[in-house]
Amino acid sequence: MGGPPMPRQVKVTTPGMPSVDPDSGNERPGLPMTKFSPAWLSQRSVVDISRSLTLVEKQDTTTSLWLLLVPLDTPLTRKSLVTDEKGDQYKVVSEVARRPDHRPLFFAAVLALISDMQTNDP
């Protein structure tokens, strides 16, 4: 039993662990980890996330949420950036499902499509 088919290829970029500069004592960002991974990426028809989205009246906003499944060796976290084969970028908007007591075959997360009008800031 190998889990669901993962016909797509994505690039997952995850910030590395920060380190402390020995000279200044300031924290500096770690090197990002990048992995090309097979994936199952599908647009969500039902939204069930534990936060609310507030839209200002007369604001023209579209929220596009996607479900991502990737193999367990993919470094996927809440801070990861996912890029698909077309170059579209997604940010993780949920906790990554890690269920060690159920012996999972993949990690799952909800993603939001990032348009060129948005930033990747959480």
Rank of each mutant, 00 (worst) to 15 (best):
N120F: 14
S45M: 14
R44W: 08
P18I: 02
Q118N: 08
T83L: 06
L105N: 06
L105S: 04
Q43I: 03
T119A: 07
L41M: 02
L113G: 02
A39P: 01
S37R: 11
K79V: 00
V92F: 05
T119D: 03
K86F: 06
G87P: 07
P4C: 12
P22A: 08
V46M: 12
Q118C: 00
L113V: 00
P122E: 11
Q59M: 14
L67C: 07
D121L: 15
S80G: 06
D73N: 12
E57L: 13
K91C: 00
Q9R: 15
P71I: 00
P18A: 07
E95S: 06
M33C: 11
D21H: 08
P122S: 12
T119C: 06
M33S: 13
I49N: 11
L76R: 08
P4H: 14
T61Q: 13
Q118T: 01
L65I: 02
G25R: 12
P32L: 04
S64C: 10
L81S: 07
S50P: 04
W40S: 12
D60E: 09
M33P: 04
Q89Y: 02
D101T: 05
T14F: 10
V93M: 09
T83P: 02
V110L: 03
R28E: 03
S52K: 11
V110G: 00
S80C: 04
V110Q: 03
R103E: 02
V47W: 05
Q89F: 02
W66T: 05
K86P: 00
A108S: 09
T54R: 13
K79R: 12
D121V: 10
R51T: 02
M117C: 10
N120W: 15
A108Y: 08
L41P: 01
P22T: 04
M33Q: 15
P7K: 14
L55N: 10
D23H: 14
A39G: 05
P15A: 06
V47S: 10
E57H: 14
H102Y: 15
T77D: 05
L69N: 05
A108E: 11
V56G: 09
L67R: 12
A39T: 01
P22R: 13
V96C: 00
P71N: 01
Q43P: 06
T74F: 02
T63S: 09
P7G: 06
P15Y: 06
T74A: 02
Q118D: 06
M1Q: 14
S42Q: 13
L31I: 07
A108H: 05
V10M: 06
G2L: 13
T77Y: 03
D48C: 12
G2D: 11
V46N: 10
K79Q: 12
T61I: 12
G16D: 04
T61A: 13
K35Y: 10
P18N: 08
P104S: 04
